[in-house]
């Protein structure tokens, strides 16, 4: 049925394992990030149990960090919700994009489950797959990041000196190394993708270094940069149907 990205027209197990393998580098990257989050949250006076609960129910770095800051300040629930909306709005874009990438094996009830695991990295790996992705691949892909995020937070709350700083520092680049590996090959082939990348990077640098612009919160910066660069790309170089076939057509062709 799902002759898709994981090259697994065979078993659900093979699909799941294929997704799991792709998720391991994400999980490893999350270990160090959530570890840092755990240490930070506990040092702000949030009990370990709550810190763990935050990680296991939210699964988002920027949102959680901002959430903890606001909790410590004792802000209103409304303010907390608004900040989460802005910081996490990019997941709505990703969900929209991923909805087009899921093959017919992904049923409605699967979507409720998979939606919980949509993170920047999970999304990036899913959309970098050729063709469509099936539900077992997605389940596998989400497993390691979720585990990494939870375990990392746990370790962070338990001890800040479990891993030497040198290892933590090196692990810090793991996620970004993966991003580079995802975007470079398509950018090599397509000048339009390379241009969109360059615009996004340029805007993101502007928000980082220019006065006034650098005051904007990081979650919002990603939304603005992504919207602007993708809109420019879509206006200047609209894709033809061969570049991103409709799910149905893809299914028929194979």
């Amino acid at each position: 049925m799902s002759n898709t990205a994981c090259e697994c027209n065979a078993s659900a197990r093979a699909c799941f394992l294929s997704g799991l393998r792709a998720g391991v580098p994400i999980g490893l990257g999350y270990l160090s990030v959530s570890f840092a989050f755990g240490i930070t949250a506990v040092s702000r006076g949030i009990p370990s149990l709550i810190v763990m609960l935050i990680s296991m129910t939210n699964l988002t770095s920027a949102g959680q960090l901002a959430g903890v800051e606001l909790m410590v300040l004792g802000c209103s629930i409304g303010e907390l919700l608004l900040s989460q909306c802005v910081i996490n709005l990019r997941y709505a874009l990703m969900g929209l994009s991923l909805a087009q990438k899921a093959d017919p094996s992904v049923r409605l009830r699967d979507r409720f489950l998979i939606a919980f695991g949509i993170t920047d990295e999970v999304f990036a790996v899913s959309v970098s797959q050729p063709g469509l992705v099936g539900r077992y691949y997605l389940f596998g892909l989400i497993a390691a990041p979720y585990l990494g995020w939870s375990v990392g937070t746990l370790l962070g709350t338990i001890a800040g000196d479990l891993l030497p700083q040198s290892v933590l520092s090196a692990l810090g680049i793991a996620i970004y190394g993966m991003f580079v590996a995802i975007v470079i090959p398509p950018a090599k082939k397509s000048r339009a993708i390379a241009a969109v990348l360059a615009i996004a990077v340029g805007l993101s640098c502007a928000f980082r270094y220019l006065p006034y612009l650098k005051e904007v919160s990081s979650g919002f910066v990603i939304i603005v940069c992504a919207l602007a660069a993708a809109v420019i790309g879509a206006l200047a170089a609209p894709i033809d149907d061969s570049a991103a076939p409709l799910p149905e057509e893809e299914e028929v062709r194979k």
């Binding site: 994009s97 990036a124 990348l197 615009i199 990077v201 940069c225």
Partner: peptide, 25 residues
């Protein structure tokens, strides 16, 4: 469809640089 096609590259580009410069010690 074109917009959604470019979104991942735009998101990843914006998230990676310059953040990667500050990801280590």
């Amino acid at each position: 469809r074109s917009f959604l096609y470019y979104v991942p590259y735009a998101v990843l580009g914006a998230m990676t640089f310059p953040a990667i410069l500050y990801a280590t010690s």
